[in-house]
Write a protein that binds this DNA or RNA. Structure first.
Lengths: 264, 264
DNA sequence: GCCTAGGTCCCGTAA
DNA sequence: TTACGGGGCCTAGGC
């Protein structure tokens, strides 16, 4: 009977040459690497950065995304998105990791002066990730039940491309006016108003109609939005992502109780 | 002589109760936690997400930022920014980590069904991080040498607040016209043009002047930007962040050679 | 390849 | 606190 591959293999960090070889081979085998140690880092590409020595966590994932994490803050201090070329070498007894990205050409070099822990991770993750209450969910909810925006509204199209972008939803109101709906899952701000104003203008040009209505649908709006919207003749309809979920999947009562129990 | 604290302490993962206590104590002591194992995760807050079981890396930093990483992709699949409340408990022999954030109220719960490795990290990172070629660097370079934008330009102010935001640089051209400069370190797009148009309008209102010039300074611009800029009467001046660095810190030749050697 | 737009964006800063 | 804009933003999707 075949033994299950070890999920975590801790490496001997005393021999850098050996370590380098082990890490390089593991990377080629599609493993994820984890190194904790003291390092410095230099990045050059769209910008340039320098990071002097300190203790950090380096993760090199199986898709060649690279993350260098300090002990604080959500964001990695240096990184490379997936698909970069990773080269692991040693220089003067120190582990050097070079991560190169093409288009845009960017290079990240991490030099370890000391390694506390190095591990090869053989992670199996076929888990399903589901995200609800995105802008797309809001769009679906409005298409399913347009009355939540305005009574008598009839959607005509969605994601319609116009000169300056994409119209979330195009509709006809009960009086026969053309309506452009812009959806935001977060607070509507100045940019939202300007974006919608563009679409309205584009559609007026295409349709050759005097007036196209513009409605922003969002949970809330900033004061500046409201001011600008008024001067641009844009309307605002408050609608929360949560409410949209209820419309899409029915009342959320049952699920919430379950989650409350789960949390408690 | 006092012995140096261990940087990495690997924990016994066989006893969940004990593990829970160790991790909780370490977190209170300002340590960073690292857990590799099979888990599921549920998030509820601005949106909602579910993640079914799989192997992942969980990092809880000393500032209480939380990162759950799958073996692929740059971004964590679930997370919590710094300052969240972290609670480590056990339920039915499984490690459960609950991360709550106030404002906005958000909850992330990670349940481990198996733990491959758990470690307490005592990381010391006083390293200095320097980032060059930001938009701010471009502004400094233009203020230092306005001729790179246009010969004879005289800056008057920077980050001047107007109704709809902040003007990067306000200047007077050689013919006495007022000029508003909007700087982008990346490709100028439609939003850039609209943003500058707003500032130009604001300043025209404030000054009571017929015409204020608007110039976008960026490494490049999209086709749509150019079209829109033309119709809005906005000008474009190509300027790269790299060139700005040269102006600020002298020619970069020496540094580049050094870096090339460093890379090779 | 370019370009637009979303994101649980995060984060800093100023009113 | 709210609001605005930057970011090495990253990433997906259309053309």
């Amino acid at each position: 009977m075949e033994e299950k591959l070890k999920r975590v293999t801790l490496l001997d960090t005393s021999n850098i040459e050996n370590l380098k070889n082990m890490l390089g081979k593991a990377l080629n085998d599609g493993r994820t690497l984890l190194i904790v140690g003291a390092c410095s880092a230099d990045y050059i590409g769209r910008a340039r950065s320098e990071l002097t020595i300190g203790d950090r966590i380096l993760i090199i994932k199986s898709d060649r995304s690279v993350l260098l994490h300090r002990p604080r803050s959500y964001k990695p201090v240096n990184w490379q998105p997936s698909g970069s070329i990773v080269n692991i070498s040693s220089k003067e007894g120190r582990l050097v990791i070079k991560c190169i990205r093409e288009r845009p050409r960017e290079t990240l070099i991490v030099k370890f002066s000391e390694i506390y822990t190095a591990a090869i991770l053989n992670l199996e993750d076929e888990g399903v990730f589901s995200l609800y209450a995105s802008e797309e969910d809001m769009r679906k909810a409005i298409l399913k039940n347009p009355d939540i925006v305005e009574e008598g509204l009839k959607p005509v199209s969605f994601e319609r491309p116009v000169t300056s972008g994409f119209i979330d939803i195009e509709a006809i109101d009960k009086n026969g006016n053309i309506v452009v709906i812009e959806i935001k899952r977060r607070t509507a701000d100045i940019d939202t108003a300007l974006q919608l104003a563009r679409y309205v203008k584009d559609l007026e040009k295409i349709k050759g109609v005097g007036k196209v209505r513009g409605i922003v649908v969002a949970p809330r709006a900033t004061t500046e939005f409201k001011r600008l919207a008024r001067s641009l003749g844009i309307e605002f309809k408050p609608l929360s992502p949560k409410r949209c979920l209820e419309i899409l999947y029915g009342t959320e009562e049952k699920r919430e109780i379950t989650l409350d129990e789960f949390i408690s």
